[in-house]
Design a protein around this nucleic acid. Structure first.
Lengths: 339, 339
DNA sequence: CTGAAAGCGCTAACAG
DNA sequence: CTGTTAGCGCTTTCAG
């Protein structure tokens, strides 16, 4: 059985300096003479020494661990976002500790407690809702949290999303401009702010044009349920166009339309999604959709969180980044449409 | 600014017991009388006390953190596997700390050093290769590692995969039985054991039938490169059937075949993939593929790792789980074929 | 700039 | 069973 870890004390002895000197050469904002640092680095390299992050965390109160709560990895938007978040955080010396939650609340509470046990420096909650008690709990523990791709009414909670309301409006305007009047909506889980905002924007633009929603069904952000929703929506008087609340469901909707109902997209039905996941760009789907600017959402999330952690800023920020409508071939394109 | 954390000492004072008594009631294998435990729990609940995992880790040497190295989240196989790994580990009181690496080695070395800095109890390396020096490094630090969906010749390294060699053979036998003789292969990155094993099994079964490989191109596990590979492979004398090294690439191959080259699948070309990602089952692709049994792979990975951690077992194990060929519609089905 | 000393919050012997 | 006593490895005053 081999040794578990080289300690700073051992390095100190070998370098002929005090243990604090070793600590200082490895602590970013510390003062050590060039000569001392040199000796220490040499000894450290020979011994293969690296500071113990956990011990450092204990005394400094900074673990450099960010807790990530997530619940929904089937939708490719999330793995992509997580990879980006992780990379961005890694560059700045932080790492993500994953906690899987169930989407429809439930165990979120215990998950947050577990996270706190790890003395994380901050929390990112993606694709999950956070009750006010939970955010209160984190604030009490002095652990900043930011919601990613969800927002909450709680004024103390920072959140980064795309502008879902505006996005919903864009879809309606696009469909209307193409001449559609019988327009349906396949919704995701209503507990999600993304769903509520997208739908609200969509409906409001429709209303302004005096067009009522033709039909509505719930797909719960799942492919199976979206397929069911499609079947029931198209059972009788079918819409000419459908806005599906996210791409993940839209793919299932298109498949159901084409393979089960024998309808052509966009000839028989226009389909528009939301997110712009990779599959939306594949020729098979060629899905018109609202792009969620993942890179900017990630950059903002990291910036807000680290600002709260490192500068002890307590300013809560809620950002909604505008996302373009990406016009592809799954929906009829209005005459003379210019992006 | 609020208090950072309730300590066991505060709970002890309130409960009128010693600090160790508090520790004991929260330490699984410890002995405390029912009465003491009762008092402690009451005080703890009132104060909102929870043990500090990091402090516990320092003294016990167990952090209950597992480092996950991963490099390739575009392929849906990985997010799915990670969710399963995380859930399984979470049930047993462990959590995943994510480290993104570049697929083609490169920064893997520094990533492993960073992981070790966090005093993880174990490491899972998914979709990345590990040099012998790295595994040596981990062994020296007494941190067990298991490779997920990759294997290495190093006899000290535990690894869990599906039986890629057997899977490759199954594909060849299936294609051969369907009467195909002009058979091509679109390969992934050759640095990956999965690629090498799948191809070796495939080629060996072809060879046994006296059928040489008609053509070969590299797709590097990326959709773009797989599309390029398809273009070049089908530029001249085209194969009747193609075995694509994973589903992720196979989707791009099918799209390219259909939309760019105007070929029908399976009428003009049979396509077979590997993994059985969700998209393989979508009606648009309906991809015949070898299923990687993710649940069992995850269960084995967790079991092996925790055995090494908790029982200090040093037995290295290499497991290759058999995966079924899932016959769908993307490849010609041999007459009288029975699974 | 540098060393000595005091803990961070907790577990694990060690006596009682 | 319970309290007391050492530390885990490190950062951070505090003197010099």
């Amino acid at each position: 059985m081999s040794k578990k870890h080289v300690t700073s004390a051992e390095v100190a002895k070998r370098a002929g300096v005090s243990q604090s000197a070793v600590s200082r050469t490895f602590t970013p904002g510390a003062s050590a003479s060039k000569k001392t640092a040199e000796k220490v680095r040499k000894a450290a390299a020979e011994l293969g020494y690296r500071p113990n992050v956990l011990a450092r965390a204990m005394v400094s109160g900074k673990s450099r661990i960010i807790g990530l709560v997530v619940a929904y990895l089937e939708n490719q938007f999330y793995p992509d976002a997580i990879a980006k978040l992780s990379n961005e955080l890694q560059k700045r010396g932080y790492h993500l500790l994953i906690f899987m939650a169930e989407q429809t609340s439930g165990n979120t509470e215990s998950v947050v407690e577990e996270i706190l046990d790890y003395q994380v420096d901050g929390i990112i909650a993606a694709s999950v809702a956070m009750s006010s008690e939970l955010s209160e709990r984190c604030r009490a523990a002095n652990v900043p949290m930011v919601l990613f791709n969800r927002s909450q009414d709680d004024p103390h909670m920072s959140a980064v999303t795309s502008d879902n309301y505006a996005g919903g409006r864009k879809v309606a305007e696009f469909l209307l401009a193409a001449g559609h009047r019988k327009i349906g909506h396949i919704a995701g889980w209503s507990g999600a702010s993304t769903q509520r905002d997208r739908e609200a924007g969509f409906i409001s633009a429709l209303a302004e044009a005096g067009v009522p929603l033709h039909s509505r069904a719930e797909g719960d952000f799942s492919m199976e349920k979206a397929a069911d929703a499609t079947r029931s929506m198209f059972a009788s008087d079918r819409p000419e166009a459908v806005f599906v609340a996210n791409d993940h469901m839209a793919l299932a909707v298109m498949d159901t339309l084409r393979f089960e109902l024998g309808l052509n997209v966009p000839e028989d039905v226009s389909v528009v999604g939301f997110d712009d996941v990779p599959a939306a760009g594949w020729p098979t789907y060629d899905l018109t959709t609202v792009r969620q600017p993942a890179n900017r959402m990630v950059a903002n999330t990291v910036e807000i969180l680290l600002d709260q952690i490192e500068n002890e800023s307590s300013e809560t920020r809620r950002i909604a980044i505008d996302g373009r409508l990406i016009v592809r071939g799954s929906a009829k394109i209005p005459k003379g449409w210019a992006q």
